[in-house]
Design a protein around this nucleic acid. Structure first.
Lengths: 258, 258
DNA sequence: CCTCCTTGTTCCGCATTGCGGGATGTTAGT
DNA sequence: ACTAACATCCCGCAATGCGGAACAAGGAGG
């Protein structure tokens, strides 16, 4: 499954995956240790990645960090992402159905990214403004809805990175979080019970791309007074069905379609 | 130079580089044609890239596009980019020196990205807001200053993508643009003569990272009245020296340092 | 000052990995 | 139905990447 073609590419990605927002720069042996590769192999891979601009070597030391080439490719992906465009009508109907504010967030591998794009100005041509708001994925509705459906290694990685307590309700215990994710997988939607911000509760459901992977989530959120546990479960079916509609719009085909 | 280690990685990157904001999705044979790879090799590479999430297959099946994994890595790069933090003091002094507004933009491979980050909120912890403003690189001071120092293939690619006319002064002729870049390389800074927006003129200078590559630029810009051609040349040394200071801060060491 | 230990870098022979021409499915157009 | 164009699969050959080991460069500690 993992190693069909171009096995070396797998190693390369393994090297890149050693880096994160907390592990900004690593040395050859740290990378070798994390990937389990022999030092010489790790070194050769790093050299290759440096040649193509996926890694850059720090000035003084033997430290490497992710290269600008990845930023370039990532920016292109962001630009080509037509999630927002395709999702907009569904977000709007969901908004009027629930009379609560609707959020659409993309998963970036460790955090949720709320992306808003304003193709602005009178010239109208290329001058985009993109506003990204980043929030943790373990204590928001959209975050948990997305995280629950990620492959196990990613979940482990997120949990291993540690959880900060934002409110009294934040799930900071790894086990509690894992149970919560289990439950989300079972029922198909996630609830935020003031885990990130006090007085904010929401219901969120996952969005799949054409490859079937969960890449984002939508949520309907409101103040605690209006958004009782009961109301959350009441709204859930609407949120889920709209998330599914968006998934289909992205080219996802539900399984068992004979 | 290109093919030292892990030659396959070069091909993989070649495949990824076929995509851009205008070429959102491509078929196997289009990729084969653009890369010059035999179809079967291209196909195998694509499969491998799909396995690691660098490419995704569209519903329509025969089309591929850049995958979310690249967005993830790009987001990490953006997050780890401490350009702004390191550049801030220099931008501030440049601002008081020139009494004009100062801009700091990063090159994303085809466009300039102005990045502003607000680590916001009372919680203060992980909840970042990032505002990105994207503008063309062929008709802004920061854009031309950066573009001029890119490797030839990237310049060719940008020029081949075509130039839109924003004002009467925009350089839309490829040859005129190439000559302009040549001049910028010679003098070390770029001038914007109302090429993007009427009544806005600026002086910009390139910023290099520790690898010596130009990844960004700073500019000082103002209204046409104040920013005469003469004043631009007057300010240039300040902009250039501050850009160099920022480069050094990023770990760049000037050549010929014996 | 010398020694030991850690870590980056280079070498080289072996066999695994990827190569690519061609065969085989699959879809679309007439 | 026939053809054309293209995606996908197959398989034998050899180039490619592998990784153990040697080498080099520091740094810490005695």
């Amino acid at each position: 499954m993992e190693t069909k073609n171009v096995k070396s590419l797998g190693k390369m990605v393994g090297v890149l995956d050693c880096f994160s927002t907390t592990e900004r720069s690593l040395s050859v042996s740290e990378i070798a240790e994390r990937t389990g590769l022999p030092r010489s192999t790790a070194h050769r891979s790093i050299l290759a990645l440096k040649e193509v601009g996926f890694l850059e070597q720090e000035r003084s030391r033997d430290q490497y960090r992710l290269g600008m080439r990845l930023f370039q490719l990532g920016a292109t992906v962001l630009n080509n992402l037509d999630l927002q465009r395709k999702a907009r009508p569904f977000c709007e109907t969901l908004n009027s159905l629930t009379s609560e504010s609707v959020h659409l967030c993309v998963f970036d591998g460790e955090r949720m990214v709320f992306v808003e794009r304003a193709t602005g100005g009178p010239t109208g041509d290329q001058n985009d403004t993109i506003v990204m708001e980043i929030s943790p994925c373990y204590c928001t509705g959209v975050g948990k809805a997305t995280l629950a459906f990620q492959p196990q290694p990613i979940i482990d990685r997120v949990i291993a990175a540690g959880q900060d307590r934002f409110t009294a309700h934040t799930l900071v215990e790894p086990e509690a979080l894992r149970r919560e994710l289990e439950e989300i997988r079972a029922c198909g939607y996630a609830l935020d019970r003031e885990e990130h911000k006090l007085n904010v509760r929401c219901v969120a459901a996952p969005i799949r791309n054409s490859a079937g992977r969960v890449i984002a989530s939508v949520s309907s959120s409101g103040p605690a007074k209006r958004m009782s546990e009961e109301r959350q479960h009441e709204l859930a079916p609407y949120v889920v069905s709209h998330a599914e509609a968006i998934s289909k719009q992205l080219g996802w085909v539900p399984p068992e379609q004979a």
